[in-house]
Nucleic acid binder design. Structure first.
Lengths: 140, 140
DNA sequence: CAGAATCCTAATAGATACTG
DNA sequence: CAGTATCTATTAGGATTCTG
């Protein structure tokens, strides 16, 4: 739909040649996955799980992820589980214990995202300099 | 805050060694940037601009990005501009003409995201297989 | 043409109370 | 402990109208 040149040539297909090798559906599903995983809370949860280096209980996650509500944490964990990025293990004890951990896929995905993350951090001043220019120009 | 081991060692600092070399603020700003750029509409807009291979007018963007409203397109373009990812050029003609194009930084960032995108597409079946397993297990 | 302004609805987040 | 249920508040988003 947004690809008006399905019979793409070199003219505009520079960094997006890969689009030609995927269906619209694959494209949309991958984008949806990025959208969900690269959002605020999912990113922090995946990060916290990787950071811990071990399975974490629900309450430990709540402590580590400052500002998240119990409801949103639950929701986000369910989504991450459904996307195959984390595993939820229930130990039917009393009181119950639930542990969350990254799946290999989740860990791999996070590594990819971290690469991007690092790339951005290394260029934060470039993003900033533009804002500074904009501000001074606006203030005139 | 979520890094309980600022004096990290090898134990948990595997893929996140880079965290030790950045401040909390850098970390948060980079995450916010990912969050904004990797969302639904920004991703599609950046993609459309790259795909076109040339500056696009407001109305051309509206056409190419199916489903977006004029208000949200305006908003998102403003955010992308403010983040230094696109440039807005107003030609004071009648009727007015406005063109949007990627900045070098925007193009570079998109390339990084596309790398991630492609990585996910190549593994879509892994994400899917987990869902399939989950569904069958739930149906019992 | 490229939006700004307005109004309105729908989706999300937060707070609180309750439960196996 | 790890949620669910419920209600409210905030926000994001869509539709429409208007303008330089």
């Amino acid at each position: 739909m947004i690809y008006t040149h399905l019979e793409v040539t070199e003219v505009a297909g520079d960094i997006f040649d890969f689009c030609c090798n995927m269906t619209e559906e694959q494209d949309a599903r991958a984008r949806a996955l990025i959208e969900r995983a690269a959002a605020k809370w999912p990113l922090r949860i995946l990060h916290a799980l990787s950071d811990a280096g071990a399975p974490l209980r629900f309450s430990r996650l709540m402590e580590r992820i400052e500002g998240i509500s119990q409801k949103v944490l639950t929701q986000t964990l369910r989504t991450l589980e459904s996307d195959g990025l984390i595993i939820r293990t229930l130990y039917p004890e009393i009181p119950p214990r639930v542990e969350y951990e990254l799946t290999p896929l989740g860990r791999d995905l996070l590594m990819q995202v971290v690469t991007l993350w690092r790339w951005i951090v290394e260029r934060l001043d470039e993003f900033d300099s533009r804002k500074a220019v904009k501000l001074t120009a606006t203030d005139n």
